[in-house]
Design a protein around this nucleic acid. Structure first.
Length: 424
RNA sequence: GGACAGGUGGCCGAGUGGUUGAAGGCACCGGUCUCGAAAACCGGCAUACCGGUGAACCCGGUAUCGAGAGUUCGAAUCUCUCCCUGUCCGCCA
């Protein structure tokens, strides 16, 4: 969410930000509406507060007269009239603010200067690691996975629906191993606090991180409760400090959690849906950082490096892509995607998305910190990144580490947890 | 799910419908004292929004005692609904 001052004083920056995302044409009327609403809001506030001040003064006089045993009928009548006007103006103000806040909640974040303008075609590969493997003679992961008995697609579809996966035997243990590997590395080497969070959250949390109100159709809602299944552990982790003020001494605060993630993927039908590429429920270890505004740029580099470390350990070649404005998520100001090459499907798979949300989420969720020098509370900057998403990582492992005989080599860092050096 | 009891500032905790944004204490910050520290004493110490200048300091106003609605000239205080917490009962991995 943007500061109202953005609408009032930096409207050109807001417009420029929307233009860079390629959504200015669509949002221009909305922005104009916000400007008008802000103006009318301030006028109404002035009008209503003037009357409230008058009413407060009259009430004092009533109290004074009553103490003196005098009648105050005339003053009470005046106060009643003021009360009627106040009620009317308050109602008007409420409507204005409701509409304004709806608009503010649905405007995406403005991306940072280093983010290229344009859509997906303007994404920049900023670095690569390792060498993508030749695709010939590599079988797609869904075939290997089924053949080795690691994944049971049919029964997943039977018990839950398409896009729900059952992992079996070494496949199931592989999930558990990834979870342990990732959490161990992030907690003992990267300094994250291990956290275990609910996968059901309330509406306020979903608004806080930016999933709602705009993307309600993408979320699984629980019937009978105003609650949702999380699409990522970012939601509970970031909202842990909703409506709180952290001492600066606790920053940067770094949390890591495993969680399953639930996505309806409405409208994504047919797009990269084979095998483990796009599923409704997948597992992920998520990293979240709360930092001071001055450090969020460098903190994003750090967070991204933490996610990359896991790919090094899994010995998977990848590239780091800086998303262009138009491809950057709604709440983010700067995002790096980590993409692993999967030779069986011949594609780069997004296995992590590391983002700096600047104060966009902090403003929505009201997460602040008290500066060490004693100044007034300021909004923190929030960051998060997957490190990493399991299903696509499993797909990549099954393809990249696939051997001539159809078995799959297990990288050393993982075999320690899996208790096997080969899946066969 | 049922029955009670509660939700007040960073924390604890007063509060009779009318100078209560809110006593007191703790914590924190500044000062006096001290070689220094502790203790003691003095002072300070909420947030948001609107306006006064473009910003800062500052000044005026409004709102905020779990959330919302109501009664009233006036609500932390009375009424209703909801949320949350605690205790007991029921159910249960």
């Amino acid at each position: 969410m943007h500061d109202l001052k953005m609408v009032r004083e930096h409207i050109d920056a807001l417009r420029a930000g929307m233009r860079r995302r390629g959504v200015l044409d669509a949002l221009s009327p909305t922005i104009e509406r916000a400007v008008a609403l802000d103006k009318s809001r301030r006028e109404t506030i002035q009008a209503v507060e003037e009357r409230k001040a008058a009413r407060n003064a009259v009430s004092q006089q009533v109290a004074q007269r009553k103490r003196g045993g005098e009648s105050a009928d005339d003053l009470q009548q005046r106060s009643r009239e003021l009360g009627d006007e106040i009620a009317r103006l308050d109602r008007e103000l409420g409507e204005t603010e409701a509409e304004l806040s709806t608009i503010l909640l649905e405007l995406p974040n403005v991306t940072l200067d280093q983010v290229p303008a344009g859509g997906e075609e303007s994404n920049e590969v900023v670095r690569t690691w390792g060498t993508p493997r030749e695709g010939t003679r590599v079988v797609p992961h869904w075939e290997v996975g089924a053949k080795l008995g690691l994944v049971d697609f049919e029964r997943g579809a039977k018990i839950s629906g398409s896009g729900f996966i059952v992992f079996r035997r070494a496949g199931a243990r592989l999930v558990r191993s990834l979870m342990n590997l990732m959490l161990d590395v992030h907690t003992s080497e990267h300094g994250y606090e291990e956290t275990w969070v609910p996968v059901v959250v309330n509406r306020a949390s979903m608004i806080g991180t930016g999933q709602l109100p705009k993307f309600e159709d993408d979320m699984y809602a629980l019937k009978g409760d105003d609650a949702f299944l999380i699409p990522t552990a970012e939601v509970p982790l970031t909202n842990l400090y909703r409506d709180e003020i952290l001492p600066e001494s606790e920053l940067p605060k770094a949390l890591a959690a495993y969680s399953p993630c639930f996505r309806r993927e409405a409208g994504a039908a047919g797009k990269d849906t084979r095998g483990l590429l796009r599923v409704h429920e997948f597992d992920k270890v998520e990293l979240v950082r709360f930092v001071t505004p001055e450090t969020s740029g460098e903190q994003l580099e750090l967070l991204t490096a933490h996610a990359e470390k896991i790919l090094h350990l899994l010995e998977l070649p990848y590239r780091v892509v800086r998303l262009a404005s138009g491809d950057t998520g709604f709440a983010s100001a700067h995002t790096y995607d980590l993409e692993v090459y999967a030779p069986g499907v011949g594609k780069w798979l997004e296995v992590s998305s590391c983002s700096n949300f600047t104060d966009f989420q902090a403003r929505r969720a009201n997460i602040r910190y008290k500066p060490a020098d004693g100044g007034r509370p300021r909004f923190v900057h929030t960051l998060n990144g997957s490190a990493l998403a399991f299903s696509r990582i499993i797909g990549s492992i099954l393809e990249h580490h696939q051997q001539e005989d159809g078995s799959v080599r297990v990288p050393a860092a993982l075999s320690k947890y899996l208790g096997a050096e080969r899946l066969s």
